[in-house]
């Protein structure tokens, strides 16, 4: 169980996140949706330890991980797939994956095999440099790289950003598949329609606060959400 209570974060001189609380039950898919600048990315970056919060608590499996180093948090089983993929362009696909397992000791062969089974495309491209992959392949690599740390909770920051609609569908089916393999998922998206379709629970964020929450399927049919985020 992952829980955030009363989290506030200052980022770039403004109060980007104000007193938000939500929880992610084990094995579920939870999504935060909202417009640009709502504070979604800041929330994820804070959980990952890249940004320090001003106040509030982040608790994972009973342990308070508020304000810990990124390395500690990855070690605890929470991994971020950063916005805009951010794969390492001058490392090969395989090296990118190995970096994902950097903090782990022991054999990682089985995990590489697991990722290659999830993303057969990456196996074909194993020796290619990350920078030469297409956008969709790079997103697969970013997800695969995060999986290499054997996360219990994987956080994805706009995985559909800048991808063709068909590729977005692929990515979302992969998200569901990963979830079925037992990984809890916290997803933030501007593509609210897709996100709410796969999510168990959804939270709507506006200018730093959570304004609405509910089951994914309920939010899709909610009048306010439809107007604001689903274009109709």
């Amino acid at each position: 169980m992952f829980e955030i209570s009363n989290l506030s974060v200052n980022y770039g001189g403004i109060e980007a996140v104000r007193d938000i609380s939500f929880s992610v039950p084990d094995g579920s898919i939870v999504t935060l949706i909202g417009a640009n600048g709502a504070g979604k990315s800041t929330t994820l970056r804070t959980i990952a330890g890249l940004v320090k919060p001003r106040s509030g608590r982040i608790v994972f499996n009973g342990e308070d991980i508020t304000g810990k180093d990124p390395a500690y948090i990855v070690g605890k089983g929470i991994t971020l797939v950063p916005e805009g993929r951010r794969i390492f362009p001058d490392l090969t696909v395989l090296e990118n994956l190995k970096i994902g397992a950097y903090l782990r000791t022991g054999s990682i062969e089985d995990d590489i095999e697991w990722v290659y089974r999830l993303f057969p495309r990456l196996r074909e491209r194993s020796w290619q440099f990350g920078g030469t992959l297409s956008g969709g392949e790079q997103q697969m690599l970013a997800v695969g790289r995060a999986l290499m740390s054997r996360p219990k909770l994987i956080m994805m920051d706009e995985p559909s950003l800048g991808l063709a609609p068909l590729v977005v569908r692929d990515i979302f089916s992969i998200i569901k598949k990963i979830n079925e393999e037992g990984v809890t998922i916290l997803l933030i998206e501007q593509n609210a329609n897709m996100a709410l379709q796969v999510a168990d629970t959804g939270y709507v964020m506006e200018t730093g606060v959570i304004t609405l929450s509910g089951k994914g399927s309920d939010l899709i049919s909610d009048e306010g959400v439809r107007k604001a985020y689903l274009g109709g």
């Binding site: 990124p70 990855v74 991994t79 950063p82 794969i87 001058d90 490392l91 970096i99 950097y102 903090l103």
Partner: peptide, 23 residues
């Protein structure tokens, strides 16, 4: 070695390297 790989990761993208748990 794996250290060398971490160095290259830092060179390529500091934020991503940090997110992967590289100090």
């Amino acid at each position: 070695s794996s250290y060398g790989r971490a160095f290259k990761a830092i060179r390529d993208d500091e934020t991503a390297a940090e997110a992967m748990g590289i100090n």
